[in-house]
């Protein structure tokens, strides 16, 4: 896809509508929890106002130096700096908007299970062990080209109570802030070559296989760290502005 150069920054302007047929619908019965948690009535459409086209903006002062390094960020604080167990990986990519512009300064927050498939969470009771050196959360701001990088451990698969054969494919949860509250997005990244992806009711909530493919990060040997870590590349697209109209208006028309 063409790159149009750096984003023009936080200029006000309306956003392209969200293509709701591309996203998973609210009700996806094979994912049982959605049955009672899915609104049944049509959503109310509205014209965007500052309530939708502004949103919180975060900066380097909001983050800590090791936030992007899940291999060290928990251990350095809580366990004396030991190494977590598991396959060391880089996850990196680029955040851009629907117009192909890189999004600089976008806040990415990730969370994940450890190598055994266990989350460090008071509510997770899976029998796989907690890793004393792994927390499982990280944060990063994209650079001027929309780029980001995390250093982490490849998460494990784990069973979940949707059915007695339901296993989540290894995945990393991603939360993204663009410049506007209406760009807010939460998603999950999967790993190339994993046979559990095709079996997962949460993945299969997405109707279009092409959309599913957008969540599967390919192995990226060009970004691997020799004798240290493999790498996967995950590019992310947030909604873009209807920028042309606004730029005309900016000229005073």
């Amino acid at each position: 896809m063409p790159t149009l150069g750096p984003s023009p920054g936080p200029t006000p302007g309306e956003f392209q509508p969200r293509d709701r047929a591309w996203h998973p619908p609210a009700l996806t019965p094979a994912y049982k929890t959605s049955i009672t948690r899915s609104p049944a009535r049509p959503l109310l459409s509205l014209a965007q106002s500052p309530s939708e086209i502004t949103g919180p903006v975060f900066g380097p002062a909001d983050l800590e130096p090791l936030d992007h390094d899940l291999i060290r960020n928990y251990a350095m604080k809580f366990s004396g700096g030991g190494e977590p167990i598991g396959e060391r990986i880089i996850v990196h990519g680029r955040v851009s908007d629907g117009n192909g512009r890189p999004l600089a300064g976008a806040l990415i927050e990730i969370w994940q299970a450890n190598a055994g498939g266990r989350y460090r969470h008071v509510s997770d009771t899976y029998r796989a062990a907690i890793d004393p050196n792994f927390g499982g959360c990280g944060r990063a701001l994209t650079d001027a080209d929309g780029g980001y990088m995390f250093h982490t451990i490849k998460p494990g698969a784990y069973p979940w109570p949707n059915s007695d054969t339901s296993w989540r494919p290894p995945h990393i949860h991603f939360s993204l802030f663009g410049a506007a509250f209406c760009q807010r997005l939460v998603t999950q990244m999967y790993f190339e070559g994993d046979p559990l992806i095709a079996l997962c009711p949460i993945v299969n909530a997405i109707p279009d296989p092409e959309a599913v493919a957008r969540l599967v990060a390919p192995l990226d040997m060009s970004a691997a760290m020799p004798f240290d870590s493999l790498a996967y590349r995950f590019d992310i697209v947030l909604r873009g502005r209807r920028s042309t109209l606004f730029e005309n208006r900016l000229e005073g028309n």
Partner: peptide, 9 residues
């Protein structure tokens, strides 16, 4: 115009 990354729970 490129499609948004699809959402997951």
């Amino acid at each position: 115009c490129r499609k948004e990354t699809p959402s997951q729970t």
